[in-house]
Structure formats: C-alpha cells, structure tokens
Design a protein around this nucleic acid. Structure first.
Lengths: 229, 229
DNA sequence: CGGAACGTTGAGTTCGGTCAATGCATGTGG
DNA sequence: CCACATGCATTGACCGAACTCAACGTTCCG
C-alpha cells in the first residue's frame, strides 16, 4: 500500500490515536479503492468481511424489503459504515452504493477484531464511534415517528443551512428522490413539501434552496438537540 | 450492598466474564432498587449519571417532541438501557418509565467508564452490547420505513408467537396503547388492524391473541432476519 | 436529434389519524 | 354492596396526509 494511502487512513479519527504496531496490523490487509457513481459496494445479508470507511465522496446506505427500498443514511468523508456487523461478525443490515465518485478504505473485519482485542486505544475509538452511530439511529427513529414529513423536511433544510454556516443558498448534495426516500416520503410528496415550506421562509428554484427567513423556518421546524443534534 | 444483589448483578451477561477487581469497582457505587409501575426513571435530555439495567420487570423507553409521545422499546430482564449516553457522557435521548413493578440496577456512569478503560474483557462486553443495540435500532427504523402498520403488527405477533415456542394463545405483556405507539400507530388503528389480521390467521378476544394459522400469518408478514432477527 | 432519468404537477385513492360515543374493567368512597 | 369515577379498548363517522398513477417539462447524454 502506497504511503499516500497510509497517511489518508491515519488521518481518520478512528485511527488517529492508535499505536504504530496496531496501525500496521490494520493496514496490512487493507485496500483503498476508487469507485464510480452508482456502484453497489455491499449488499444486505452478506457476511461483513470488511469494515468500510468513506475517504472521499458520498455513499448511500439503503435497505430493501419486499421490493420496497428506503434510504437509511448518507455517508461522507471519514464516515465508517457497517461497523456493528464487523464487530459482531454478523451479516450487513443495509446495502451501500456510491452516489458520487468515491474513494473507500476497506479493512478486513478479522483485523479490526484482532486489533480491537489488543489495543485499548483502538477499542476506545471503536466504542465511541459505535455509540455515536447508535445515537444517530435513535435520532433517526425519533425523527420518523414524531414528525410529519413536512416537519422532517423543514428540519433537514435547517440542518443543512446551519451546517453551511448560515448560508442563504443551499445546494443539495444528493438527488431529491434519495432525499425523499431518506425522509420517508415519495419524490412527488417532496416536491409538494418544498412548495409547502414557502410560507415558512424557504424558497426553491430547481436545485437551489434559499433559506430567506431562517427564524421563520426554525419557528416551524422546532429543531431539538435530542433529535437533530 | 447485600450479597444477594451482587450475585444478581454478576448474573448479567455484561458482567459475567469480568475480573473480581473490576466487578468490585463497578458495584461499589451501585444501587439496586424496586420501583412501582408507571414510575419515570429517567427523562430525556438529562445527564447520564447512571447506567441502568433491568433486573426484573419491564421498562418502557419513550420520547416526546412537541407534545407528541412515542414508545421506542420495551426492556425486560437483563437489558441495559442508555448505554451509549453513559459511554459518551452525553444526555439521554430517551425517557424511561416502569410498566410493571421492576427491579433496576443502577451503576454510576463514571465507574462504567473507568472500568471500561482498565478491563478489556468488560470493554468487549460493552462493545458487543452496544453493537447489538445499534443493530436493533437499525432494524426498528427499517421496520417503520419499509412496512405498513398492518405488516408491522403481523410481524410483531409472529415474533411473539415464535418467542413463546409456537404457542397458539398469546397474552400481551403491555397495554395495547403502548404497543400501538411502539408500532407507530394510534390505539384506534391498532384495534382495526387486529380485525384486519383475521383473514391472515389471527383471532383476537380481549387480551388474548390466538394465532390459529401461523403459516398464513407468516405468508402475509414476510418476516426477515435483517429486520426481525 | 431522440431517449432516458429526474422533477414537477394534477387527479383520484388509500391509509391512517382525529373526534366522539360506547362498552368494559378496575378502583374508590359512601 | 353499590354508585360513581377513571382509564383503556373498541367502533363508527369523518378528515387529512401521503401514496399512486399519469402527464408533461427539463436536463443530460449518447
């Protein structure tokens, strides 16, 4: 593995504080690979042979049941995915596909479990990452169960707005159909919901969303640290 | 703390394989307490001062947003809850209340984090528990997003049926209103859904559910290891 | 210049929620 | 013991949110 890639992996918070020996053990069998958009990386139900880490780009996690598909989350820079399956040596619960051209680090699950046993710093990182993922899953469930689709969209836009430092004009990173699925609605309904947010300080023109009145949007969205934080 | 309680804690899988020293450190500041039904144990947003473990009884985890409440899960014997908050030293994302009379073990979060650092066996248990909880949360989200309310109920009953070794007559452990909330529907709709399952091999009479044709129910429910497993 | 995929819009339908009334069980106080 | 209150489950009528289906416009790409 080229030095460039090693540095790349090292930069990931998950590996930042582990020992040199552990790092070597983790990277010995690792791959770094570039994938074109719309490439299925893993399929739910398969054995979790590798831990995946998005280095650059964007990966969608999704699930299918009885022909119905739903977007579960979008992973960008430095996100791990399917960590729980790797740790427990159980099948993936979700499938993953690239949305944009993406570079992905893959580390054999076996090595992860091995280093986990020996390196307590790494174990700590893993636990921290797992706990964060778990909390995010809980937040997702609360979001879906407690809010209407319009409220979910309002909070989604508000979050984007804040993440981009309060910028007025927002560009959506992923297709609307996927956002719709992520938010638990149909593309048609997302279109209508965007229109419905006009009276709450959001204007839309094609791919560009304008948060013209953030206070008004926030008043409607009622963001909450225990769901959106 | 009485010997009886120590044995009780020891029996929990989370503490089964840890060293004597670690065990002593964990139990030094621990409480074991009995609570009557319908007692709120923790409130979302509060600091995670204790890890809670249900020793006997049943505890409901729920969340509230804008006056709307939803049941997130039911915890019975040997279940931990709010482990992620304890580990990360962050506020609880859910509230908890007893449903039945319950005995609960409470261990100061600080002690959990301390022993976690020193005892790798304990760290392993924690990670395993966390990963399991995480996977359950993912399954919950998939269940809600991919299934209709009738399908969710069908799978819920089927799961009960199988958990009780294929018994025909099932008794619901918790009130229907809470099951309804857990399944993401109103009590009224749950009533109607029960009626709707008549044509799929389920009969209902008050508190007693009869799975008269498990094959028929399964054919409708399409249970899946990646959601229900 | 098609053709494909996506987004939008409209019409109609369905699923699930709201509201209200009733029945039923439990519990309390006279 | 009964009268009454309370809380849950059920049922019906109604309503609203979201989905389906279909048509159409746009963009992107071969």
């Amino acid at each position: 593995m080229p030095q460039k890639h090693l540095v790349e992996i090292r930069d990931n918070p998950l590996f930042a504080s582990i020992g040199a020996e552990s790092f070597a053990a983790l990277t010995r069998g690792a791959y770094v690979q570039n994938f074109p958009p719309h490439t299925e990386l893993i399929t739910e139900g398969e054995a979790a042979d590798f831990l995946h880490i998005v280095s650059t780009g964007c990966v969608e996690l999704f699930s299918i049941w009885q022909g119905r598909e739903t977007s579960m989350s979008f992973q960008t820079e430095n996100s791990t995915f399917i960590l729980a399956a790797t740790i427990k040596d159980l099948p993936y619960l979700m499938s993953a596909r690239t949305i944009t051209k993406s570079r992905v680090i893959m580390i054999p699950s076996q090595d992860i479990r091995g280093v986990f046993e020996r390196d307590s710093m790494f174990a700590k990182s893993i636990v921290s990452e797992l706990a964060t993922c778990y909390r995010n899953a809980i937040k997702t469930a609360k979001n879906i169960k407690l809010r209407t689709s319009l409220e979910r969209l309002a909070n989604y836009i508000l979050k984007l707005h804040l993440a981009q430092g309060g910028r007025i004009e927002l560009e959506l990173a992923v297709e609307k159909r996927r956002i719709a699925s992520f938010l638990g609605m149909t593309p048609e309904n997302l279109s209508r919901s965007f229109a419905g947010l006009k009276s709450h300080g959001v204007e839309m023109d094609g791919q560009v969303i304008k948060v013209v009145d953030a206070a008004k949007l926030e008043e409607f969205a009622h963001p909450n640290a225990l769901i959106d934080g």
